[in-house]
Amino acid sequence: MKAIRAAILSLGLLAGCTAYEAIPGQPQAIGNGLSVVGEPEFNRRTGAIGRRAEFQQWTADGFELNALHLYGGIGEGETLSPVADRDNRRELPVFRANSNLAEAAEFVQASIAKLGGTALIEARDIRPIAFGGRDGFRFEFRITLKDEVERDGIAAGAVASGRLYLIFYHAPRQHYFERRKPAVERIIASARL
C-alpha cells in the first residue's frame, strides 16, 4: 500500500527521502536559463532528483494536496520523469527536440496519463501563450488516479533550442486546486527564458 501511496502523491515523480526549504519571493533559477519568481507559500523539495539537476518540485500543503513540477528543459530522448530516465524505463513518451507546440502538449498529457497509470485524463483549453517571452502553450487537465480522487491541473511550457521548458501543477479538484491556482498563475507568468 505504501508504494501505491507514494505513486499517487506525485504521479510517481517522487523518489527517495524528502526535505523541504522555503522559497523566497525572488527569481529562482530552474536550469538552462529558465527562472521563475518564487512564491513564499510554496516550499521546495531539496536534493537532486534522478539525474537531472534542472528539475524542481514545489508544494504548498504537501505533495498529496498540491504539486508543482518545474523543468529547466527536457532534452531530446528524455522523458517527463527523471526517475524513469535514471532507471532506464522507457515506456514513457520520449521528447523529440523537433516537436512543435501541439506535439509538446501531447507529450506532456500522454506522459502524465502514463505516469498516473490511468485512462481517465482530459485536457481542455489547449492554447498558445507567451511563456518566458517565447511562443508557448498552456492547457488544463482533469485526471483521476487509482485513489479515485479527481485532480485538476495546469501545464504551461515552451520549446526553445530543442528543449521543452515546462511547469505543471496538479491538486485535488475539491478545494486545493483553486486555493493555490492564483500563485501558480503568477509563477507561470513570471517565467523568464
Binding site: 512543435n100 507546440l101 501541439a102 502538449a105 489547449i126 492554447r127 498558445p128 492547457f139
Partner: peptide, 10 residues
C-alpha cells in the same frame, strides 16, 4: 475542439 486555438496558430 479543446485545442482549436493552438491548432489555429499553426
Amino acid at each position: 475542439a479543446q485545442d482549436r486555438l493552438l491548432i489555429q496558430s499553426f
